[in-house]
């Protein structure tokens, strides 16, 4: 019996996917946990950032810094476009408009007419070239057992984690600053903040832009070791991010990071166990049926977290912003 999946599951602790989801969930925390914006379009921000990076790198041949800048600017513009019609409205309108906008992005990049630019349903390959070109790590294989990484894998993992920790530090400083106190005030009582003479609309817009920027960086980290696939940025990605954020704690800085690690370990372990169960016929299911189970697990977990521990693993009950 092959138990190597356990090692692979614990490899998720440092995998680029975990980093990307942690960063995107951190952005969601800024929007949802701290400012109280029900942003269901985080996958759309990721898609905008990912395409901004991949198109400028692969199709236009821009240098790394310019591509990263393009991704961030794209996400900020997207936040601006989304924010104008919705930030004055109630939370549920924002949720529907953001989820709709994310889907519009996904439909648009998949359009056959745009294949020369976006690659259609196939997405874009090879956006790691400029990033790998500045890799200082000597060629070789690093790691133990089944967890082997080549120099490029290791490079993105190191850069990704450094970036994530820097972003976490930045968000943490931001939330202790006057700006952070104002957005938390908006979350608790918008009218009170408005009565103090603050421009609530503009603060919400800034929060959405910061959240979107983090999502764009997350998307870059996600596509560099693999490739850009439009269907990876559907609504289910946003819901995964919500699960991760709520699991760790929606009003904490470390919550999204811890949540992402636990989330991917659990999914990876359950996939491995199910594969074993299918191979040895412990359960009356086929390998085709194995795929949907992880989503059922996520869905049920999301319900249970919201109902039984809305503050998440790390959150404080007193700050469990979670009631409307």
């Amino acid at each position: 019996m092959d138990f190597s999946f356990i090692w692979l599951a614990f490899g998720q602790i440092i995998s680029p996917q975990t980093i990307a989801y942690a960063l995107a969930a951190l952005g969601l925390t800024v929007c949802f946990g701290f400012t109280g914006l029900v942003n269901f379009g985080q996958a759309g921000f990721m898609a905008v950032g990912g395409y901004g990076f991949a198109i400028t790198t692969v199709k236009f041949g821009w240098p790394l810094w310019a591509s990263v800048l393009a991704a961030i600017v794209g996400a900020i513009i997207f936040a601006f476009i989304l924010g104008i019609p919705t930030l004055r409205l109630r939370a549920d309108y924002l949720s529907i408009v953001t989820i709709a906008a994310a889907e519009i992005v996904r439909y648009t990049v998949k359009t056959p007419q745009f294949v020369p630019v976006t690659g259609g349903t196939d997405g874009i390959n090879g956006s790691s070239s400029t990033f790998d070109a500045i890799n200082p790590i000597p060629v070789g294989h690093y790691g133990v057992g089944v967890l082997m990484y080549n120099q490029d894998d290791l490079w993105i993992i190191i850069v990704g984690w450094v970036l994530t920790l820097l972003c976490a530090l930045l968000v943490s400083r931001l939330m202790r600053s006057p700006w952070g106190r104002i957005v938390k005030g908006i979350r608790e009582d918008e009218d009170a903040v408005r009565a103090l003479g603050k421009n609530v609309y503009w603060y919400k817009m800034q929060a959405l832009m910061i959240g979107g920027t983090l999502a764009a960086i997350a998307a870059i980290i996600n596509i560099i070791p693999t490739s850009l696939q439009p269907d990876n940025y559907g609504t289910q990605t946003t819901f995964f991010l919500f699960t991760i954020m709520l699991l760790g704690g929606a009003t904490t800085i470390m919550g999204p990071i811890v949540g992402s690690i636990i989330f991917w370990i659990v999914l990876s372990l359950s996939d491995g166990l199910l594969s074993l169960a299918v191979t040895y016929h412990w359960l009356p299911i086929t390998s085709v049926q194995q795929g949907p189970i992880r989503f059922v697990i996520v869905g049920v977990a999301l319900i249970l977290i919201v109902v039984f521990r809305p503050q998440g693993i790390l959150g404080k009950k007193s700050e469990a912003y979670f009631s409307a």
């Binding site: 549920d92 949720s95 919500f242 989503f295 996520v298 999301l302 319900i303 919201v306 979670f322 009631s323």
Partner: peptide, 12 residues
Amino acid sequence: PLMIVSIGLSLA
């Protein structure tokens, strides 16, 4: 939170 519960239910 109810809205998020409905999302979880939808996925499941």
